[in-house]
Structures are given as C-alpha cells and as structure tokens.
Nucleic acid binder design. Structure first.
Lengths: 336, 336
DNA sequence: TTGAAAGCGCTAACAC
DNA sequence: GTGTTAGCGCTTTCAA
C-alpha cells in the first residue's frame, strides 16, 4: 500500500507528471522514459489511488442499484443482469436493499451516500407520488418498475398492460373461460399489480366475459406463500375455475402448488400462467408458462441510459423506455 | 451539487473548520454557531463530498462482495444477508459476479478496483490452490466457501462433512437404505461437493451400508437442470433407490421433479433431502427437507470479521470460523 | 517531451 | 470556541 506517484517518480528519476502520463497512456512520452517509469511501477508494485483520482475527476466509476430485496428472485435476476451489463461497461455496482420500505427508499433517493456513485438505478416499491419531488435532476437516476411515473428521470419499464392482456388472451384462446387471478393488490392505483389487472380485464372485456371478483385473489406481497394462501382461500369458497393467472411467477408457483395439492391436475383441469420468466419457472413441476417482460433488455437499457446520462450531463427530457414482452409456453398450459 | 464546505462557511459567516466541526459532531461548538451553520447547510442543501472525505481518511466505507452469480439462489440469498449486515454496520457493498471463472476470480483478487473498497468478502469457485499466493495480507479479505483452505485470510464456512453426514443419518434413521446422491463432482479434491460426499460416505460406513457408485449422480454445475439430468440418467439405468440426497437444494429440486414425473411418490417411494435451506424449498411440491448450513450466521460473521480486520489493522493469524447447521424437516421426507 | 504547481473537498494539527 | 493551514494522491494547465 501507500506507494504513490511521488514514490514512483523518485525511483524512476522523473517528475510525477511523467509518471501520470505513462499511467494514463498519454502519447508524448519518450520510449525510454516510459520504460523506466514502468520498471519503477513494477518494482514498487504501484497502483493508483482511485479515491484521489475520483476526487480530481469528480467521477467514481460506480453506480448504485437499489432494489427491495435480493432474496426475491425477480430482483436477484435483475441485479445479476444489471451488474453484468455494468461490468461490461467498466463500471462497478453497489447494491442497496430497501426492503420495499418507503422510508428507506426515500433515504436512498436523498442519497447521503450518493457521493460514492455517479448515478442510481432505482426500483422502488413503497414510494408515493408526493415523494417524487425528492428526485433532483442533478444526480443521474434511472427509475425501474411501475411505482413512479412522473419522476424527472428516465424510466425503463415493461409493457404490463399489454403483456397481461396477451397472457389472458393466450388462456382464452385455449378455451379457458373461468380465469382466476392471484396477486391482486387492494386499493392500489399505481404499480405492476393494477396494470396487469387492467390487461386482464381488457382481455376479458374484449372476449365478452364478465369480470368476477370472486375469482380474484389478493396477495399483497407476491411471495410464494401469499400466492398459496390466496389460492387456498379461493378454493375454500368452492369456486369454479379452469385457469389461474398469477400476476407474477412467485405467486403463480405458490398457487400451482395449492392447486395440485387440492387434487386438481395442471394443466388438464386448471391451466396456470405466470409473469416474469424467472429461471426457476423452467424447472417447476409442471414447468410454468409465463410472460418474459424483457428483463434482460431492461437491465441493459437501464445501464446504458444511466451511463449516457452521466456522460452527457443534463441531457434531454425524461424518457420512458418500454421493453418488448414474449409469452413463454411451458407445460402448465399445454393443450390436452 | 458542488456545494462545498467553503460555501456553507461563507453563508454562515464562519470558517470551514467550524462547519466541519458541526458536521462531525465535534463537541466544542457554541449552540448559536451550530444553529447558524445548520441553517446554512439546510439552505444550500449541502452534503459532504464522500470522495474527499475518503481521500483524507484513507477509508471508503465500502466493501466488495464477489460471488459467482447472483441469479443462483444460494448466492442471491447470501448477498441479501451480507448487504443487510453491512448496511446495519453503516457500510455499503459492491457486488461483483465472477461467473465461477478462474480468470475473473483472479482479477477480483488482484483487485485493480480494490481502491474503491476497504475489504473484500470473496466466495470463489474456480480458484486453484496455487492462486492463493495472490491473496496479499495487506488488503483485508474474508473467504467464504470450500474452494480455498489455506489462504492468508479469515475463512468463514459451514460444516459440510458433519452436516452431510447428519442429513444422511436422518434418512437412514427413517429406514432408507438405498440413498442416491445427486450433484457429485468428478475428480474434485476440494469444494463443497467432495466434502458433502465424505459426510455421506461416513454415514453409510457407520451404518454398515456399502457405497454404490451406481446411485451417485454427477452434476458439475448444480443447476436445476443438471440435477434433473443426473436423476433421469440414473433412473434410466433402472436402479433401486428409496431416497435421494441432493448435494444442494437446486439439484435436489431438479431431481425431485424427475422422480415425480417418473411416477414415483415423494416421500412414500423415495424421500428427498436437499442442502442449503433456500427460501424456495419451503414452497416446492412437496416442500423439501434440507440442511440449513447457517447461511445467516455466515453472512453476519463474514461482515463483522471483515470490519474488525479493517478496523484492527494486521490482526491475528487467519482463523477458520464454522457455522452451526440444522436439519429442516419438511414434506419430502415425511414418515409414512 | 517533461517539470512545477495549483487545487479537487475534506480533516485535523495547531494557533489564537 | 473558532480560524489558519497543511496535506490526502491525483490530474492538469502552463512553462520550460
């Protein structure tokens, strides 16, 4: 440690400017001088102090990623993709977990610690509309998710309504008519749940099928257990259903478990559709048909948009970037 | 941005030292002065430049966590726990993904970027014994996992042999006698797989049951698909088994899927045991009996050990810290 | 092609 | 109690 430019300069018999030039591949350094400096660097095991460099340059080469919880598979897979993309761009990522707690999310937004990063990719869950003012435009932020629509920041997200509608239409096209929903949120205006519900209703409406509140199961937290609970509650009411649309994969998997336990066959008696295309949906029993909302594209675009914003200063007005989706057909909706 | 101590001092009509004193809760500041400074801070929206502070202090307040891949549930849950612990200690965490690639792991170890962090929690998968020399003792490192046993660094890990032995004994105690293994690695000397295999064999030996290579399935990568593949291959050979011990939960879940598909009942015909206690094991169908190797403790201990090492300088000799394990009984091994 | 020196924003001796 | 000032290690004009 503690080997500085000055030490290297001393050993090489040059000024620190020359050493700096060598390190930064500055062109105008005589071949012989360069060699001497490189020898000194190797001899001393010098490596530049990034903190000092950052202080000078005003950049840190790091971005922050704030998600509710890495132990939720969706966010784990999102984070994996974001880190991979950032890595490729030569940027490191520090990950914050907000626990979907509004107070913690505000803390991230106000960013006492933002000095350590050049920008933030932020996927809030608890934030309210009135918190938006907190998002200053000075610090580069890219928002993810559905929770915030009018922040003065770029927003990368998915086509929730269209994708949920397509998923529902897929089930309808199979002749399913009593399509239950698991994972609805009560009294929610914004957010993935309400958007996906809208897509579901649009599809029903277009097919002339009445909406039935009795087969809409609430699950506030989208954990596997809450999906299972909602399904169990619904079955206890002896409803008639021939399909289940889980508003995300996690609740869909929980619901599917309860369906199978209840003696129903999937997909023969009840088809099951998820949303998110988590890796594990490929390996559930049966494997789960789901909607790939374009997570890979979202990660890539979030990173590149943020880096452009960081590099470009106070560029254009906030943009909304929408990923393409795709239905991934698996066993849980196989025909016959 | 760009509001500095100097600006605040100007507005408050004091020197920067006084502002600094206020910010750092230095005791000797008159009440009135403090109030004036705080007003100025609020007015200007000042927040200290962490990079400058770091440069002065030589600390960054950040640590790095290097894992193979966050989209692997084990590492996602580990990372979640590490970040939570670090958070509580007021430290942020950079997450790096090495892809279990030796070259990338070496890169992390050599750490061109380590200047951004005060230390590293490192869970390698590809590293070889001869790479250990790379671990200098100047930079605080805490190792996780089984891959490296003699690094000059603290090592926090689990009781693989004992836990695997206990898991096997649990199955034996149920009267299972043909216990297959899924997830063995070929020709591996170090690593979780060989340790857990050792525990398995110890239990068999103690029970006087011969080891049978025909019911040991290899799965190099411990993905769900490789677990499923290994199980399928084994079943295709028409072997006689009454239990499966997956060397981790992921392969166990993949194997369980194939068992169920093959028409076998779990646990009636074949009991299934996993290892890791991933969240999802609670919600599989049937839920998976597994070994909790003490991941929460490992995360907590890794963070506290690293922070102690950072704070304490070149302290004691490398220590090995072992977590307690626990068998989590679920449906996949329920009796009768 | 290289050197001298200013300063990024902050902390902490050391004065007063 | 508060102000002055010297750096932390680096990059970068500006001269030489």
């Amino acid at each position: 440690m503690a080997v500085t430019l000055r030490d290297v300069a001393g050993v090489a018999g040059v000024s620190i400017k020359t050493v700096s030039n060598v390190i930064n591949d500055h062109p105008y350094v005589r071949q012989e001088t360069r060699a001497r400096v490189e020898a000194a660097i190797a001899e001393l095991g010098y490596s530049p102090n990034l903190t000092a460099r950052n202080l000078r340059s005003g950049r840190t080469g790091a971005i922050a990623l704030a998600v509710p919880d890495l132990s939720l598979p969706y966010f784990a897979e999102l984070a994996a993709a974001v880190i991979r993309e950032a890595e490729a761009a030569g940027v490191v990522v520090f990950v914050e977990q907000t626990g979907a707690d509004r107070a913690r999310e505000l803390e991230v937004l106000r960013g006492r610690r933002r000095g350590l990063t050049d920008g933030l990719i932020f996927s809030p869950l608890g934030l309210e509309a009135e918190d938006l003012a907190e998002v200053g435009s000075a610090y580069p932020v890219v928002m993810l998710g559905e929770r915030v629509f009018d922040a003065p920041a770029h927003h990368v997200t998915m086509r929730n309504v269209e994708a949920a509608r397509a998923a529902t239409e897929y089930l309808l096209a199979q002749g399913r008519r009593r399509i239950a929903v698991i994972g609805a949120h009560v009294d929610e205006e914004v957010g993935s749940a309400s958007l996906r519900m809208r897509g579901y209703r649009e599809a029903l409406d277009a097919a002339g099928i009445p909406y039935d509140d009795a087969i809409v199961g609430r699950a506030a937290l989208w954990h596997r257990s809450s999906g299972a609970d909602a399904m169990r509650e619904m079955l206890s009411r002896d409803v008639d259903i021939d399909a289940v649309f889980g508003l995300n994969d996690t609740v869909a998997l929980g619901a599917m478990r309860v369906l199978l336990r209840s003696g129903r066959r999937v997909p023969e008696d009840v088809a099951v559709m998820g949303f998110d295309a988590l890796n594990e949906t490929e390996f559930s029993i049966p494997s789960l048909t789901t909607v790939d909302p374009g997570r890979a594209w979202i990660a890539k675009t979030a990173v590149s948009t943020l880096l452009a914003r960081i590099a470009g200063g106070a560029d254009a007005a906030p943009r909304r970037l929408l990923a393409d989706f795709r239905i991934v057909e698996r066993e849980s909706t196989a025909r016959d």
